[in-house]
Design a protein around this nucleic acid. Structure first.
Lengths: 183, 183
DNA sequence: ACCTGAACACCGTTCAAGT
DNA sequence: ACCTGAACACCGTTCAAGT
């Protein structure tokens, strides 16, 4: 509420990177609801209006969070056999959902086609190609797997699998799905 | 913006049912973003404060929308064989997602355990029991199927499967999933 | 080019008061 | 019991102005 950074006014120049950094930090310690143009500006010791030049608008701020969220997904070790790579990627996505339960739903609204979603998707493609699928089947299998994994992770983050052995169930289901998609 | 219903002041008594009716209508023709305590009150010719006694708070309004959303799911014809019942239920869920794309994500945040989610879930249970699964496997299969169907429907509503034959892909994936879950 | 100040048109919610 | 009026503490965003 009171002005911040009055003793240390603008060390670095403002810019998208620094704004998203602070947005991410704010979301991490106060939750998604606390992410407002005003609050982010406050943390940067700047007027809300100053942000508009760099991030467009509020949605631009959220896009920044989606980017970071996707960047947080640990990519699988490329030396592992392909089934392990798929499993590791899926676990990486679940881990992000658990670490950022309130941010995770943002992935459902705007994801997939955007650039930052490419790296995890390519990791899945690579594993599925190595499994022997041709390109059309690789793409379809990736869509079905990611749909299930995102759905599962969202459900988990929302507490839908509260009293259930989610680890066992997830392992079982992804294994079964994989067997169907990769005959 | 201007006062409504000034010529026809409060015909019926205010109450949760009537409030949620109007909320649903508002969401249908102006979108989820237009659903505010003030706008709903305005449509009812009443002060925003009047709503609090009946719906608790803003979240109570959204819970009402979730109820209606679940109520919109067409339940399968009980005379059909179980695989068709499952398919019909899944299509019913997709249909709701397509009819209310901006409301549908609400289902992910708060669903499953709540009472209004019971009817579609019971329909799935019934089909899976008829397929010969015991109760533990019925519940697990339902969780996995609903996770996939909700994820697929959300993705579709968000436009993730824009240039893809979603019908074919959905049929293929749910069929495959069913074969795995119901051996 | 980049930031500020003031303003506009909103929000959800509390609280005391009216009937 | 049920609703209102006024107020509080916020929002995102526009616009003209400053440097």
């Amino acid at each position: 509420m009171t002005a911040r950074n009055t003793t240390a006014p603008r060390r670095q120049p403002l810019g998208r990177e620094r704004i998203i950094d602070e947005t991410w930090a704010l979301a991490a310690d106060r939750g998604l609801a606390a992410v407002t143009m005003r609050a982010v500006a406050d943390r940067l010791g700047v007027t809300p209006m100053a942000l508009y030049r760099h991030v467009g608008d509020k949605q631009g701020l959220l896009d920044g969070l989606v980017e970071r969220l996707l960047g947080e997904i640990r990519l699988p070790d490329p030396d592992l056999p392909w089934p392990d790579r798929l499993a590791q990627l899926a676990q990486g996505i679940r881990a992000v959902a658990r670490a950022h339960p309130d941010l995770f739903p943002l992935l459902f609204a705007r994801s997939a086609i955007t650039e930052p979603a490419r790296r995890p998707r390519e990791a899945a493609y690579s594993a599925l190609r190595e499994a022997g699928l041709d390109q059309t089947h690789v793409e379809r299998a990736e869509r079905m797997l990611s749909t299930f994994v995102l759905g599962f992770a969202s459900s988990e983050a929302a507490g839908r699998f509260e009293h259930i052995d989610a680890d066992a169930e997830f392992a079982y289901a992804t294994d079964a799905l994989r067997k169907v998609l990769v005959p």
